[in-house]
Computed example of a mutant assay.
Amino acid sequence: MKQTQKVPEATSKRLPIYYRILQKFEQAGKKRVSSNELSEVLKVDAATIRRDFSHFGALGRKGYGYDVEELVQFFRGVLDQDEATNVALIGVGSLGSAFIKYNFQKSHNTRVVIAFDPKAPHEGKEMNGVPVYHPDEIEEQIQKRGIEVVILTVPSKVAQEVTNRLATIGIKGILNFTTTRLTVPDTIRVHTIDLSVELQTLIYFIRNDENQSQMD
């Protein structure tokens, strides 16, 4: 079951969701599942699910559907779930503190192993088991740990400045929670999550659904 073509970004974003749902099916003892069953749970139409899966070759069998255990193993490999990824957090305000308290290691293979905040001492302090250093230590501490992915929760006014520093030390990915549209070299991938935009989008869809219901 090999990837046969470039996977669209929209499909890639759904892969962790497929993996999570399939894990739940496996834990419940379910042996096989159809695209229609997945559609009911995920609220994604069955045709889209089949098209997403088709990018990875023949994952299912006609008349049978998909083997749950095989799919879990396959997506674990695709998502590198057997290899832990260490992440740095820059900005330990309200949102950053929530990341540290939750820490991703509890649910999958990604975990925050170091954080940076202007209020922290240069020699570092510990918060929920995570060492927190002053931002002056970013280059040294990140390079020492070989970290390639960063969560950015700093004030927007300093987001680009911090990003410029990260670009000089081999960072490959930034999960950006600021409202700044970051400028980065081609070697860095940025995913921006603007919570205010997401909330406005949610409200729009709610209002649109209400208008559609009134028209029906």
Rank of each mutant, 00 (worst) to 15 (best):
K2M: 14
A84P: 04
P8W: 03
L59T: 00
L95A: 10
I171Q: 07
E37W: 03
A88C: 09
E40H: 07
F25T: 06
S213Q: 13
D45V: 09
I174L: 10
T178A: 01
N164E: 10
K31P: 06
N109A: 00
L15P: 04
E161R: 07
T168P: 13
Q5A: 13
E137C: 05
Q23G: 08
Y102T: 10
L199K: 13
V184K: 06
P8L: 09
K6C: 11
A47I: 11
G65D: 06
P185F: 07
G65P: 01
T4Y: 07
G57S: 01
R189T: 15
K30S: 03
L22C: 10
I17L: 04
L202Y: 12
R14M: 14
R76P: 10
S156D: 14
H191L: 10
Y64K: 11
I142T: 05
K125W: 14
N36V: 12
V158T: 04
T178P: 05
S156Q: 15
K172C: 05
M1R: 13
E37R: 05
P155A: 01
T110P: 07
A159C: 01
N103P: 02
R50S: 12
Q27Y: 10
L175G: 09
N128P: 05
V162R: 00
A167C: 07
L182E: 02
E126R: 02
P16V: 04
A84N: 04
R14T: 11
D52K: 05
R51Q: 08
D117P: 04
T168M: 08
R51C: 08
D82E: 09
F104M: 11
A47G: 13
H55Q: 08
D209L: 14
G170D: 00
T183I: 12
I142C: 02
K144A: 15
L182I: 06
D45P: 01
Y102C: 11
T168V: 04
S12E: 09
L79E: 01
V7Y: 04
Q81D: 14
K172D: 05
T192Y: 03
A120I: 06
A167M: 06
P118C: 02
S54Q: 06
E161K: 12
N211R: 12
V112F: 06
T163I: 09
E123T: 12
F53A: 07
I147N: 00
N208I: 13
K125S: 14
V154C: 01
V150K: 00
G170Y: 08
A84M: 03
G63V: 00
Q23V: 04
N86H: 11
I171H: 01
V154Y: 02
I193V: 05
E37K: 01
A84V: 09
Q200W: 06
T168W: 07
Q200Y: 14
Q160T: 00
V78Q: 11
F53T: 04
A10W: 15
T179N: 15
Q3H: 10
Y18D: 03
F116M: 12
S213H: 12
K24F: 12
R181E: 12
V72E: 07
A88M: 00
V7C: 01
A58P: 13
G91T: 07
E126S: 12
T163K: 04
L199A: 13
K30P: 14
A159W: 13
N86G: 08
